[in-house]
């Protein structure tokens, strides 16, 4: 039954890639994939918080009493989110302005509490680290893919660099809110078709 560390890591990249397979963490997935820069920035922030909180919670899993575990998990997650928020303000201020309210909202992201409750609270430190890193990178990849699709077709740019000639007319529908839902729906559809055996 015991999986290897490598398996814990790689499951987050495909088999349990958060927004597409677990269908968790959809709020930032929808809102922050207008541009690749935002999507990847959000993904990295979530990965950092996920790895840190997974490690700490796994270390303390025998100390935390069952009745107050959720409160303790949230305190740990909220602390790291605030750290990320301050560090982003100090070093990448323009990105901080773009992500805005969605940085503090990482606290209530289901992926984080989900991994803490379902994995870190029951497994060792190394496995939890691998799990956090895998899920985090999977989340970043998912946001990156969706953002690439939306930014390239919806705005005609990739990472703010124009990819098509000046004659290209962007499908601005895709960078608006309804476009986010359509893109996510199509992506889920593709993932389900590929995954079916």
């Amino acid at each position: 039954m015991a999986k290897t560390v490598v398996q814990e890591f790689t499951k987050g990249l495909w088999a349990e890639i958060p927004p597409f397979r677990l269908v968790l963490g959809l709020c930032p997935t929808l809102a922050m994939t207008k541009a690749v820069e935002n999507g990847v920035g959000m993904g990295i922030a979530v990965t950092f918080v996920l790895v840190c909180s997974n490690v700490i919670i796994s270390l303390l899993r025998n100390v935390i009493p069952k009745q107050v575990r959720i409160a303790c998990f949230i305190v740990v997650i909220a602390t790291f989110v605030t750290v990320v928020e301050l560090v982003m303000q100090a070093f990448t201020y323009p990105l901080f302005l773009k992500l805005g309210i969605f940085i503090p909202l990482i606290v209530v992201n289901c992926i984080l509490l989900g991994r803490a409750e379902a994995f870190a609270a029951k497994n060792g430190v190394i496995a939890s680290f691998a799990d956090g890193l895998g899920i985090g990178i999977g989340f970043t990849l998912a946001l990156g893919t969706l953002a690439t699709f939306r930014e390239v077709l919806g705005n005609g740019t990739f990472y703010n660099i124009p990819v098509f000639g000046p004659s290209f007319k962007p499908f601005s529908f895709l960078v608006n809110a309804p476009g986010a839902f359509v893109c996510l729906g199509l992506m889920l559809c593709i993932m389900n078709m590929v995954g079916k055996k």
């Binding site: 009493p65 107050v68 409160a71 303790c72 305190v75 740990v76 602390t79």
Partner: peptide
């Protein structure tokens, strides 16, 4: 006590980062 200790630690850490 557990929750209080957790909160105290996180408060201290955040103050330091700030």
């Amino acid at each position: 006590v557990t929750v209080a200790v957790f909160s105290t630690f996180s408060g201290g850490l955040l103050a330091a980062v700030r």
